[in-house]
Design a protein around this nucleic acid. Structure first.
Lengths: 195, 195
DNA sequence: TGTACATCAGTGAACGCGCGTTCACTGATGTAC
DNA sequence: TGTACATCAGTGAACGCGCGTTCACTGATGTAC
């Protein structure tokens, strides 16, 4: 049956959020459309009234997750300039490791994006560039010419560290914690030194 | 029909190698048993004569891939002590980015391992620790107390950089190259400085 | 304002398909005598 | 050395299952008059 335009928009948003959460937790291949619909309080048919395909929903879910994650990071500064240490405390943490569903899609899906279509890759690139720009702006103690290379390394390092910490969590929790702690500190020091 | 014991062992090895290659390229969920059997020159039935399940094959394929990758890295030194720069030139390169099938399973599968069972996570941890120990041994200019933290960060950073470079390759090849170049250099400098 | 009805978000049965796994069978191997 | 036969790696049809997608249908919404 038809619903109000506002309700339809809310349903669409619920589908995007539910898909994002589930895709981050179990991968795009690991979740079916029936479960996404159910998690959004709808049926799978509703998904096809809003999106042409599961892949199209995946691209939008990635974009929305990146947007939400970026918003959370920028909110860490209380209006003051953002500090690298605060960002790393938030992203390279046991908390972020354990809350995959609510976390940053870059860390949740890095090695899967390469297998998705070009639209998904494009959304990934946008989110990554935004992250790099955010980190670059915190590198006030680093020579300007060096900042971008450092920012690229820090963002890639953060993504790798969280992915490794998650992969090791089941078999070796202590190592997982150690990776988080060491990476957090060493990447943090890259923002303080000179060239 | 029965085959010689040697032939059976060769077939088993072919299944493990084919599965490793395909899993790295397209993910464990992305490849079916029929294709693995075919790639090894057998049928899918042969897979179940050698392994109890696809998951068991996945764990063995990961272990074998890690072993092969580690061997390739240690071969980079010609008997001399291994140098960090040589390892990074090999692992953080456009070549390694583009040859997923033949590359290091840590980079190919990082964000998928967390969703697999404990056996797969255990094989991942073994391979990761071996990589960290190898990198640590190259950090001769770094204070001993600092070496392990640096090595953890370098290995995690390398994994993240290659994963990001692969994810960005479709939508933005220039950015993909830039991530490889910047990470290669910045991580390399972590082996040369003092504390 | 009241009425008629076109719109379209949402439903859910049904589709073809490929998945992982099972199992009865084959037949060369390799051993016991 | 020659023969009989148990072993078991490998085959491929068949299984139940869940997947993504389609589409005829429903019925409240919202608009035209």
């Amino acid at each position: 049956m038809k619903v109000t335009k506002q309700r339809a928009a809310e349903n669409r948003a619920a589908l995007v959020r539910a898909a994002g959460r589930l895709f981050r937790e179990r991968g795009i291949d690991g979740v079916g459309v029936a479960e996404i619909g159910k998690a959004a309080g709808l049926t799978y048919g509703a998904l096809y009234a809003q999106f042409p395909s599961k892949d199209a929903l995946a691209a939008e879910a990635l974009a929305e997750g990146l947007r939400a994650s970026h918003e959370r990071v920028t909110a860490l500064s209380g209006g003051d300039p953002l500090r690298l240490g605060d960002v790393l405390d938030f992203l390279v943490s046991t908390r972020h490791r354990d809350e995959i569903a609510a976390g940053c899609p870059l860390t949740a899906s890095a090695s899967e994006i390469a297998r998705q279509d070009g639209t998904v890759s494009a959304r990934f690139v946008e989110g990554f560039e935004r992250s790099v720009a955010t980190i670059e702006a915190t590198l006030v103690g680093v020579p300007v010419a060096e900042r971008r290379a450092r920012a690229l390394t820090i963002v890639a390092g953060q993504i790798g560290a969280v992915a490794v910490a998650r992969a090791a969590a089941k078999a070796h929790p202590a190592l997982s914690d150690e990776v988080i702690g060491a990476t957090r500190r060493v990447l943090g020091e890259m923002g303080g030194e000179g060239a």
